[in-house]
């Protein structure tokens, strides 16, 4: 059932595709970090309608599947607008938008944990709105939530196989292609599964280490 020599033969190809997986996940996470921050800041806007719009967007993106969002971005966007992206760019955009809404909640929890007095002090010192955000609030709000953001990096890594639906050749699609050439299915899928398992276990070990470091620094 398990053929070691065959497994060794297909491993390099799968590892190469795994690099694509990691690349897409990291780029998507990077975008999500930015989008999440923008959403979190606008969700505290002074204007009610802006807050309402941001909340609705977040709610909508969070309650629809990433797969369908990817299809929409990849197949409909070029028909509605003159824009058209490669599979990789669409995948990164999809991951960034989807998990940006999740990360905005993470930022929110960090921002709400900053004492009210900090906002008032910034106002008393006559700091501008921008200065208040970037010099006072965010430097205090973000570091404590970094481990939580790390957890979402793990989630994103595990979601990247979904990008195979829009023809991005990552590990799962590469395993599928390998299997369709040789008709041997067990090894490629098992290796793909183990690769994900190892990566997410390593990452979650890293996150829990970071959690400990953060706890020592901010609660001690």
């Amino acid at each position: 059932m398990w053929d070691w020599s065959y497994a060794a033969e297909i491993l390099p190809g799968l590892l190469k595709a795994f690099r694509n997986t990691i690349g897409a996940a990291l780029a998507g996470f990077g975008l999500a970090v930015v989008i999440g921050l923008v959403l979190a800041m606008f969700a505290r806007s002074r204007w009610g309608p802006v807050r309402w719009v941001i909340r609705s967007i977040v709610e909508f993106i969070r309650s629809t599947p990433l797969l369908v969002q990817l299809f929409f971005l990849y197949y409909s966007l070029p028909m509605l607008t003159p824009l058209s992206f490669s599979a990789f760019a669409t995948g990164v955009l999809g991951l960034g938008l989807h998990y940006g809404t999740y990360l905005s909640e993470v930022y929110r929890s960090g921002i709400e944990a900053v004492p009210r007095g900090q906002w008032e002090a910034a106002k008393a010192l006559n700091l501008s709105r921008v200065k208040t955000w970037f010099s006072v609030i965010l430097p205090q709000a973000i570091p404590p939530v970094i481990p939580m953001m790390g957890n979402y990096l793990i989630v994103i890594v595990k979601e990247t196989p979904t990008l195979s639906a829009i023809t991005l050749v990552e590990v799962l699609l590469s395993a599928k292609n390998t299997a369709s050439i040789t008709y041997r299915v067990f090894e490629p899928y098992t290796i793909a599964g183990i690769l994900f398992l190892l990566l997410s276990l390593v990452l979650s070990f890293g996150v829990s280490r970071m959690e400990k470091i953060m706890k020592r620094r901010y609660a001690g």
Binding site: M1, V157, K158, E159, T160, P161, T162, S164, L172, A175, K176, A179, R184, V185, F186, Y189, T190, A192, G193, F196, L197, S200, L201, S204
Partner: peptide, 23 residues
């Protein structure tokens, strides 16, 4: 809990549907 939280759902689905018959 650790194992099934660490796997990717789509890979798990593929594995169960396509690979398990070989086992």
């Amino acid at each position: 809990i650790q194992l099934f939280r660490a796997v990717s759902l789509l890979v798990l689905l593929f594995w169960m549907y396509f690979a398990l018959p070989f086992a």
